[in-house]
Design a binder for these strands. Structure first.
Lengths: 188, 188
DNA sequence: GTAGCAAATCTAGCAACGCTATTTAAGATG
DNA sequence: CATCTTAAATAGCGTTGCTAGATTTGCTAC
């Protein structure tokens, strides 16, 4: 039915809202069922388990992040693309910390190059891979390394390990590293 | 007393063991109290809460990681230090995934440059900062960036986002990036 | 030696959690 | 109107983190 999908979206939205305001531990099945004015079994009919709800939120998050990266990539014409995308990535993570957290804390998600991987994940990652297209023979390695660096920065900043006020400088350094390698045409 | 500290260590060890074999959700207070043949309130007398136990494990982990990095740094004489430390970091994370997970999943831990930060955290981070000592004016930025990159690689590999069989190549690329920047004496 | 006290430990239970078997309500079919 | 299917709610099971109150232990004083 149609309202079935609407209610699905309603649950996901409620979960995101609660998580962003009070953290994921506050996102309980009872709380969600109250929020949408239905009983608990309805939620289980939709998602099967609490983790299923979180997974749905995570996948939605990957879709949004992919869109944000694509937007940043297409906005900038020449030069500074890497800088734009990197900042877009970190801004996404900083704006929705709970969303970013669930995107990378769910261990049940499969690897990125696995055929069973949801398209949203591949879409998001492809935005980073595009940056190195045709530039080097090591597209995969470089995009993986960029992803890891950005994720590390986002994660350490989210958990207060790194001060956020120095984020811009870190991005500058990261960009300098990658452009430096590009200019020298280093063979790895 | 003396046996009080012994029991504390016993609890931490049991928690690590269970987590490494069955994951952190299996580390329950009841399970731990069974393991050490005491009742639950004894654990609460020691750590105050379940999270207190995890925090203690995490701090111990940082101490061990700092030692591992220091060992790698001192073993290599000239050149390739960065490579050695990077590999030591990732090997630590890969060898004890549950330990690494709890070290970075606890949000209650304060930032690295905070005075209230446990010395184990600062000790571990200082091992990375040492790599850039006197090399550039941006010691802080570079060490933070290196830390973030390594953590991102470790975290994405642990959660199966990146294939582990390409880890060595990623490290090579990372090292190439940093040495490239070093050779050109880039001012950021 | 025993009465009393303080500290340590256990027993038992609360509230909240994820999840589900069973029952009740509602709408369609004949 | 009776029946059957589908949807939802009620109620409850087992387990969790945590704690108040009972109980044991070990020591001190007389």
């Amino acid at each position: 039915m149609r309202d079935r999908q609407a209610r699905r979206a309603q649950i996901i939205t409620a979960a995101r809202q609660i998580a962003e305001h009070e953290g994921w531990p506050s996102v309980t099945v009872r709380r969600l069922s109250d929020e949408i004015s239905y009983s608990q079994p309805v939620l289980y009919a939709h998602f099967g388990s609490r983790e299923g709800i979180l997974a749905a939120v995570a996948i939605e998050g990957f879709g949004e992040m992919g869109a944000a990266l694509q937007k940043a990539r297409k906005k900038v014409r020449r030069g500074g693309i890497l800088d734009a995308v990197a900042n877009a990535y970190l801004e996404f993570a900083a704006t929705s910390p709970a969303l970013y957290e669930v995107m990378f804390s769910l261990s049940l998600s499969v690897k990125f190059d696995d055929p069973a991987t949801p398209p949203e994940l591949r879409y998001a990652f492809s935005q980073l891979a595009e940056l190195f297209e045709g530039q080097s023979s090591r597209v995969t390695i470089l995009s993986e390394l960029l992803w890891a660096s950005l994720h590390g920065m986002a994660d350490l900043t989210r958990t207060k390990r790194l001060p956020s006020h120095r984020q811009r400088e870190r991005v500058k350094a990261l960009v300098a590293l990658f452009t430096c390698l590009d200019e020298k045409h280093v063979q790895m």
